[in-house]
Amino acid sequence: MAGQIQDGLGRVLEGNVSMLEKAMSAFGEVAVDQDWSADEPAPRIEKPRTIARPMEVSAPGTFSKNAIRTLRLEPTEMSGWWLQRSDIPDSLPIKVSIRNVWTTGEIVSNIVLRSGSSHNYVRLVEHIIALKAGMDVDNLLIKLDSGDPPLFNEGSKELVEAINSAGRKELEGKVRYFTVKERVSLLTPHNGVLLIDPADEGSLSLDIDCVRDFPNAIGKQRIRFVNNERSFLHGSTARTNTTARQKFLVSTVGKLFPESRNLGYNSKNVLIAGKSKYSNTPTHMHEGKSLEAAWHRAVLDLLAALALIDEGRFVGKIIDYKGGHYPDVEMVKLLYAHDLLVEV
């Protein structure tokens, strides 16, 4: 079994214990800005569901801003979510699974899934696959016309609306739920903490306590919520965030690098944070403060990692402080590597 067991931290899967303890202390000092933790969890689903009819959504590409990219959503009886490149003849669909994660990006942090050939990949999948963990669709086939998905102006709002417009169809079988066997934790690259507790006995709730902490206009933001229809729809419209400096570098020096040369970030589809104020208008205002960065992180980034648990739906309690795609994916990988998942 991995790691040592520490009071308050549970089984430490990665990172220095004293640094983790400092991170937990710093996390606890951040005031809660918005608290939806008393909400009812999403209802239990017994039979797996797919969409009732195909739908298409299009927008400029994430990494090819001058090209329109299309996602075609199709019903399927294949278990889980699948991505298929229609531009690569005879390519196998890529299952949304921790087993198919290729990288979490370097210049632009994002989850890249791949199956078989190195050409058969899809970049920046997190804002798509988060819907697997946040909506009542267990099986879905998504066809793409390239490895570069569209980048929408309001998070994943258009994709959520398309799935809801498609309706649902029940399939044979049974939905499975998983949680961790015990408390687990790891240290993030920015000296934060990702900690997961098992679900309470008899509960199928996923509870998230998320903190963003940046030395810029974003500052400290903390939200607590239960993953259900209200919280997911609210968070799914939050844009990813970048700094004004990063945006400037991508638009100048970044043109020298293939990974960022045609990156489609603009003032509509990302939140741009300067040192003391935003360069564009933030959303998700609560009591005069924008919580857009926290909602995006918790719903469209963190839930994407949970979607990589491909056997079923994840339930439990999560603390996320200074997290990111790399520690998210590392956590899921270690849960599998050390047999720390259990079916509820």
Rank of each mutant, 00 (worst) to 15 (best):
A305M: 13
D209E: 14
T76V: 07
I309E: 03
G316S: 10
P282H: 08
L92P: 01
V30A: 04
D138A: 04
E126A: 00
G147V: 14
I5P: 05
G312E: 08
V17K: 13
K289D: 14
F257M: 08
L113W: 00
V226T: 15
K174F: 04
I128R: 00
G192A: 12
G192K: 04
D148Q: 11
V270D: 06
N216C: 04
L140I: 06
N100V: 08
N139I: 01
K268I: 07
D209I: 10
G134N: 00
V184S: 09
V101Y: 01
A31P: 08
K174V: 11
T104C: 13
I51P: 02
L334T: 06
S117K: 15
P75V: 03
E29D: 12
V329C: 07
D145H: 14
L206H: 01
K47P: 00
T243H: 03
E287Q: 15
D39C: 10
S91K: 07
G3T: 13
L271M: 03
N66W: 12
A294V: 08
K169C: 00
T188L: 05
G155P: 09
A59T: 11
K247A: 14
K268H: 12
S37P: 10
V30D: 02
G173I: 06
K22D: 13
V226C: 10
M55V: 14
K275C: 01
L341T: 13
H286I: 05
S146D: 08
G80W: 10
K317S: 13
L233K: 12
N266E: 11
R297P: 02
N216V: 06
V250W: 14
I107P: 02
S165I: 05
H286R: 01
D213G: 10
H119D: 10
L83W: 12
W295V: 01
I129H: 02
S79I: 11
T240I: 00
L131I: 05
F27A: 08
V342A: 10
G202V: 09
Q84V: 06
Y326M: 13
L113D: 05
E287W: 12
Q4E: 13
K268W: 04
G8I: 05
E154C: 06
L256I: 14
G288Y: 03
M135R: 02
G10E: 12
I218A: 14
L144I: 14
K181E: 02
A166N: 12
V342C: 06
K277Y: 09
E74Y: 05
N216S: 03
D328K: 00
F27Q: 14
E14Y: 07
R261P: 07
I98G: 00
K22G: 03
S260H: 00
G192W: 08
G219H: 10
T281P: 04
C210R: 01
I272E: 09
V315R: 04
L306F: 15
P75N: 07
H338V: 07
D320C: 06
G235V: 02
T179D: 12
A337C: 07
